[in-house]
Every structure is written in structure tokens, then in C-alpha cells.
Design a protein around this nucleic acid. Structure first.
Lengths: 224, 224
DNA sequence: CCAAAAGTGTTTATAATACACCCATGC
DNA sequence: GCATGGGTGTATTATAAACACTTTTGG
């Protein structure tokens, strides 16, 4: 039946928004191949694990995130011959969108660090530049027609925080007033809480939670 | 490094539009497991092949299609433990959108046949029902924000043919007059040819080719 | 001539943009 | 008070939907 077997890994493109830009979590490799170079966090799939289980485990290892509040989805698989000098390795790239959080300074193993996606000099190990590019492209596209932007925010957030996510990911300023009405009037996007929060000067902002909706459905050629 | 190795396969969700509905190309399995049952066409990745190479080769085997004129993209990978009784097999699902074509009655090996996606009774082999559902969902979604619908049409086609594709995939009738103006006024969607074609009675229709555009970009929260 | 399908023009509704203005807080 | 960011109202503009109407063929 077989004849050619693959090792199967899961690599993670973990994105967040901080200081006005998109950032990715990278680790520095300690062992060959590509020792000393930056790479996406990842690991091999264990015997009785499904792909999403592996990704969830790796995400928890790197960020401490468990359960809900973030977004994790499969991105694509990469298996070009020669992409790993050790032999035939297929990696299933995953995309995670998480709030800006304090990374565990993990005494255990290789701790990750946030790197601005826009200005990075050196290339990543393996074909991870390619995987990262695919992940960023997918994230940008998905903000347009889903409510995923809220995954970059903490559990409770203001409309301004959400707006800064869009501005950071797309690199364009948005009109705060139109943005406000757009997101608050989109059914199922935001769930209002009674609480407000005061950010230094200015009127206190209302706090929201993520709503149940996922797709935003702009009309294309459809009839109502 | 490894310890747990996978066989890696590529399975194809080959979709077309015929007689007013979405159809999928299925083969009947001749060997265990699931001998005699319907399944998505597929096969194992060869030693020096990349995933898209395998998918392209399988698509040519099943449909005779080579080169351009159709659409082929990676869908997702499936590797749940136990999905294949023979052992650990990861399959990379691919989605192909092709014109309604005469299938090669392939004397060689298991010939495929078109099956309406809407009304199928028996479940498919392995987790292929799941992969098929993902493929159909992706195809429906992509028609909304890309110009991929033209991949279901032959190299030259009329606006009415293109409209029937949308109507079949979404299951809703569209206004022929508004549809006409929408697609002909969308930059890069259709390239007009000088030729026309007469379909029985009625005014002859102009023939078009696929244009270079891929995304349709409905505005969401963006500023111009 | 009539029926049928292709294609255009025009009106109406709906949604997106621009921007004036009010609200609630810290200092 | 006044600067600052939050939030609402409204005019303008673009786009989508509805549909009357013209065009070009086959019978």
C-alpha cells in the first residue's frame, strides 16, 4: 500500500495585534537543522492525535491559552520534496489569532517572542516564510467577511480597540464614527455588557463581548 | 525524530455544474477497504512529488484535463486516527472546479461518474462525506467573492451560461438583466470576444472568455 | 407576425461615506 | 473650562434591486 512515508508536523502562525501592527510569535531553533534561526512554533503529531489536537496542544504550550477566546483554524499543508533536509516531512500549517498577551517566559523549552510582521530582516527556517505569508494573507482576507477581528481582542473590549485591530491589519485608518455604527448595528457581531471603562481622558467607552455571528455576508450577486 | 509515520494521500472533490445542479465526480472502489462503495478519486503521493503535482496528475487521470481552463486548489488535510482501517493515513483534500465534460470511459482503471450533490443516498467511503461537504461549502463561498464561477464554464461561454452556474450552486434564481450588467461591468471578470452564438430561438448571445481578475472585493469596513 | 432569449435604460430602495454635532470624563 | 476620546444624527453619494423596453434571432 504505502512505500513512501512521511513524518507529519503541525506548525503555527500565531498572530496578534500590538503597538499598532500585526505581530507573529516566533521561536529560535536550538537544534539542527536551521539551529539558531527563527522559526514558527510547531511539533510532530503524536500517535493517537488528530491535527487540531496537536495544534491546540502546541498553542497552549507557547501561549498558555486554553479553551476559548481565541481562534484556531487549519491553514494549508506543505510537503514539497526537500523542504526538510532530514527527509520527507509534511507540515500542516495552522493559523491562530490571539489577544496581545504576556508570553510565558517558559523556563521549560524554547520561549517564543513577538516579531512585527511588517519589518523582519532574516528569512525563517524551512519554508516558514511561505507559511507565514499564507497565514497573514488569510487573516487579512478573513477580517473582510467574518467577525474574526474580535479574536485579537481580550474577552471584553471597546469599539475603539476593535477598530485599532482593523487599522493595524489593513494598514489604513478608519472613520471612528462610521466604524462604530457599522459594528454595533451588525447583528450578532458584538454583545453589549453593562460595564464601561475609562481610558485616561475622554468619555468612558462601553465594553462588549464577542457575538455569535461569524460571517458578515456582503451581497455579491445574490438576490435577497 | 519521528517514530510515528503517515502514508500521505491526495483526494479530489471534482465539481461541475450540469442539468441545473452541482455534481461531484465519484469512483467505485474495487479493493478493500470499503470495496464496492463510492469514494472521492485519489491516490498516494509519490516519492518526488509535491501535493499539487499529485492532485494535478489525479485530475488528469480522471477527467483528461491538462493545463488551464479549470481551477484546482488545496482544501484541507484530514488525519483523524482511525479514518483509514489500514493504519495512519493523512489525506490532503483538493477542490477542482471543471466544465461539464464527457468523462473518459477509461478502459484503464476505475472510471468515475457524475453524481448530483443534492440527492445522494449512501454515505461515501472513509471520511469522504466530510471532505465533500467541506469542498461544496468552499465552492459556494468562493463564488461570492471571486470570479471562479467561470471555471465551471467552457473556454468560451455566454453570460446566460455563467448565470446558470450561480443559480445552480446557490439554488436561487437571479435576474438575468441585473446579472448581465453586473458581470459585464466588473473590471477583469469577462473578456469579450467578437463572436456570438445562436442557441435555438432568441437573439444570439455574445461569447466571453475568463478575465484576469480573481477577487471581487465587496466593501466591508474599508475606506477607499 | 409571434415567441423567446439577449441586452439596455430608468426608476426606486438600500447601504456606504463624509462630516457636523452632542456626551462624559480627566485635569 | 477645555482638551480628549466616545457616541449619534444627517446629508450626500454610490450601489443594488425592480422592471419597462428595445434588439435579434427561429419558426
Amino acid at each position: 500500500m504505502r512505500g513512501n512515508l512521511f513524518a507529519v508536523a503541525v506548525d503555527l502562525v500565531i498572530l496578534t495585534v500590538r503597538s499598532g501592527g500585526l505581530h507573529v510569535l516566533l521561536v529560535r531553533r536550538r537544534t539542527p537543522p536551521f539551529a539558531g534561526e527563527h522559526a514558527l512554533p510547531g511539533g510532530f503529531v503524536r500517535p493517537r492525535e488528530d491535527l487540531l489536537d496537536t495544534a491546540t496542544r502546541e498553542l497552549a504550550d507557547e501561549t498558555g491559552l486554553t479553551g476559548v477566546g481565541h481562534h484556531l483554524e487549519q491553514l494549508a499543508s506543505y510537503a514539497a520534496p526537500g523542504r526538510d533536509p532530514r527527509g520527507r516531512v509534511l507540515t500542516v500549517g495552522h493559523l491562530a489569532l490571539v489577544p496581545d498577551l504576556a508570553l510565558p517566559t517558559a523556563g521549560s523549552d524554547a520561549a517564543g517572542a513577538w516579531h512585527a510582521v511588517a519589518d523582519r530582516a532574516e528569512p525563517l527556517a524551512f519554508d516558514h516564510d511561505h507559511i507565514l505569508a499564507d497565514g497573514v494573507e488569510r487573516a487579512r482576507a478573513k477580517l473582510e467577511y467574518t467577525t474574526l477581528a474580535a479574536s485579537f481582542c481580550p474577552p471584553e473590549f471597546t469599539v475603539a480597540q476593535l477598530r485599532r485591530v482593523y487599522e493595524a491589519v489593513w494598514g489604513t485608518p478608519l472613520d471612528p464614527r462610521n466604524f462604530q455604527r457599522k459594528v454595533t448595528s451588525t447583528e450578532g457581531f458584538l454583545v453589549p455588557t453593562a460595564r464601561t471603562v475609562s481610558r485616561g481622558r475622554g468619555r468612558p467607552a462601553q465594553l462588549f463581548r464577542r457575538g455569535p455571528a461569524t460571517a458578515l455576508h456582503p451581497p455579491m450577486l445574490r438576490d435577497p
